[in-house]
Amino acid sequence: MSCASLRIVTASADYADAVTDGNPDRLPDLTAYDAVLFDLDGVLTPTAEVHMHAWRTMFEELFAQWDIQPPYTDRDYFEYLDGKKRYDGVASLLRSRDVEVPWGDPADPPTADTVCGIGNRKNLVFAAVLRSEGIAAYPGSMRLVDKLQAAGVPIAVVSSSKNAQEVLEAAGIRDRFDVVMDGVVAERDHLRSKPAPDVFVEAARMLGVDPARSVAVEDALSGVQSAAAGGFAVVVGVDRGVGGEDLARAGATVVVDDLAAFVD
């Protein structure tokens, strides 16, 4: 497939260069690229809301117990947790409050005061909400998936979450993706967390495509930075609340608020 004829909106310091306002004349044709790699939470499914709730519940309790200031806010989620592997996010947020704890081991119990133990504590809350409430994929995102699959474009999921397989199964869309690069694979293969490019580049390798001829779709600042660092031809930023201007500054070449824009 050739992407040479496409007009791509290039991000610069000016947010207007990247935001499209849903104008189809400014949107690239994603079916003309060799592959499209999707983040999961906040791009394909609204699990970001469940993650936000779980992180907030866990950290508010922890900060109160340890008398950590300033208090946890939702901005902490976007700055230190969103898009990163769970333990990296815990360490990053605690470091922002000048708090250092032992890293520990992934097998640590949720009661352990280690990075891994705290991360496992949060995961209990997330898993409970997912089991009790389920999850549904964004309709606009699935319309784009349908369009890409009808055109024969390879697609993959690139997620930092170790819960990616469970989320995809809960949403009933696991069979739509041949490649799922998740937190389990990243830990097994010692891949660095977003914003490092490792997971996106490895997912492209697993698909057998060149990032320079492929598309990455992200809603997190760290994820956009990861895809941009990986040399993807187009980095689509989906603004689910982090802010379109921040996504553009992080490296998004196109910013939309719903992936249905690429279908409409």
Rank of each mutant, 00 (worst) to 15 (best):
T10D: 11
V129W: 01
P70I: 11
A233G: 14
V145C: 06
F38N: 01
D146S: 10
A228T: 12
Y138W: 07
R192T: 13
A204C: 02
G230K: 02
A204V: 11
M181T: 01
L30M: 14
A233I: 02
T45L: 04
S92F: 05
G140L: 03
N120Q: 13
L221P: 05
D25V: 09
A220K: 00
V254I: 08
G104I: 07
E218G: 01
W103K: 02
L144N: 12
P109E: 11
A216T: 11
A261F: 14
M142R: 03
A48H: 12
C3M: 09
A54H: 08
L44D: 12
P195R: 00
A216L: 09
N120G: 10
L191C: 06
C3I: 06
V201I: 14
V36P: 07
R143Q: 12
D17V: 00
D17C: 13
K147I: 02
L94C: 10
D189W: 11
L130G: 11
L44P: 11
V43M: 07
D113W: 14
E202H: 14
A196E: 05
P211L: 15
R213A: 14
Y87R: 02
D113G: 05
L191N: 07
A227V: 03
V101H: 06
G237E: 08
E169K: 15
L93I: 15
G243D: 10
A171S: 08
P106A: 10
R192G: 08
V115C: 05
E169Q: 15
D98W: 04
A261Q: 06
A220Y: 05
L27T: 04
V99A: 07
K194F: 05
Q69W: 00
R176E: 09
V242C: 10
S193Y: 03
F63A: 12
V99L: 09
L93C: 07
A64P: 01
E187G: 12
I155A: 04
S159V: 08
P71A: 15
L221A: 03
G104P: 03
I118E: 00
W103S: 08
W55H: 14
D25S: 15
S92H: 04
G231R: 08
Y15D: 06
L40T: 09
G183S: 13
T57M: 06
D113C: 07
G172F: 09
P211F: 03
L37V: 14
R86Y: 09
A250T: 02
E166N: 11
E79L: 14
V236P: 00
V158H: 01
A18Y: 08
V9D: 10
A4M: 06
R205N: 13
F78Y: 12
E187P: 03
